[in-house]
Simulated assay, not measured.
Amino acid sequence: MSKRAKIILGIVVVLFVIIVIWLKKKNETSIEVFKTETAFKANIVKKTVATGKVIPLEEIEIKPQITGIIDKIYLLEGTKVKKGDLIATVRVVPNEQSLISAKGRVDNVKIRLKNAEIAYKRNKALYDKGVVSAADFEQIELTFDQAKQDLINAENDYKIIKSGSSGSGGFANTDIRAQISGTILEIPVKEGDQVIQSNNFNAGTTIASIADMSKMIFEGKVDESEVSKLVSGTDIQVSLGAIEEKKFPAKLDFIAPKGTEEGGAVQFTIKATITLDDNYFVRANYSANADIVLEKKDSVLSIKEALLRFDKKTEKPYVEVKVGEGQFEKKELELGVSDGVNIQVLSGITADDELKIWNKAKKDDNNNN
């Protein structure tokens, strides 16, 4: 064999080997295989979570009836009290000008009373002799009685300004007493603090706040996109940050008719009455979350949301249904309620359809490309 023939034969052999290797690799290339799953029946519950806190249904602030200085505090925060129990006392520091004015009124009334008494005694003797008529004497007697009452009133005013109480019975203005039965939540003042009574220009100093801790409510906020789906009277579940292992049943009682803007979103206040458990002590202002059912569907045809895709042009949801080996067909769906994991399918597929599970890209695949 000539040298040229050997070269040609070598080239043919090399080409043959290359073709064989190429065909082998081509035959080894397989169609990408996707796993499938079918739709299923499921109970789908759509919920929302409202964040808020637990507060007493009834809470009042005790304010003094007179301006002065806290003289003595008898009870501590957390103490259970009954209506009328003494919490603290206020020592009056009278205004000198008011005190002098009140003392002057007492002295003036005493002068009028002395003159009225002299006139009464003189005319009484004349009336007994028949010199003064009954009508004239009755008028003089009335003036005398009025002067006596005016003195009593002036002296009471003077005592109230000086000591805070007239001592005529009942509770003194200097006594700070519980207005309802409950638990003292807070005493924001100390002995020696100056306090101001409530008036038209000042709300007054709060000496104590009291609440009935056996009646608690949840107060939270929901977004405007969900408030229209809430119904008053709905049963909800309230979980407390401080009591993680327990959920308290509650009933939605109030949905605010007006929202407030917070952080660019409109929020609506809701309130729900909580059913307490005697085994747990719930404190005021515990942070809490309320699970609220917005919509519920029982035993409906459903799929996992991970199977969904959305058309780039129409933005309509669809899945791919298996029609042959390695072959899938696009099916648009009409969807219903979703719980974030599963979603209701109203139309588009049947329970027997095999739905494509979208494979995730791997790093090795990218490196090989």
Rank of each mutant, 00 (worst) to 15 (best):
M1Y: 13
S2T: 15
I11N: 01
I11V: 14
L15C: 13
I31Q: 12
T38I: 07
A39I: 07
N43T: 15
I55A: 05
E61Y: 09
K63V: 10
K63H: 06
P64T: 05
Q65E: 15
G104M: 08
D107T: 06
N108P: 00
N108S: 14
N108V: 09
R112E: 15
E117N: 14
Y127A: 14
A134N: 05
D145C: 00
N156A: 11
Y158V: 02
K159L: 14
G164P: 08
A172D: 13
N173A: 05
R177K: 15
R177F: 11
S181F: 08
E186C: 02
I196M: 10
A203Y: 11
G204I: 10
A208S: 03
S209G: 04
A211C: 06
V227H: 02
G233M: 00
D235F: 00
K246R: 07
K247W: 01
P257G: 08
T260N: 10
F268V: 01
F281D: 12
V282Q: 03
V282H: 02
V282I: 13
N285S: 11
E305W: 02
A306H: 06
K313A: 12
T314W: 05
P317K: 01
E320A: 07
V321P: 04
F328P: 01
E332H: 14
L333F: 04
G336V: 04
G336Q: 03
G336A: 03
N342C: 07
I343H: 12
Q344C: 09
D352A: 08
K362R: 14
K363Y: 11
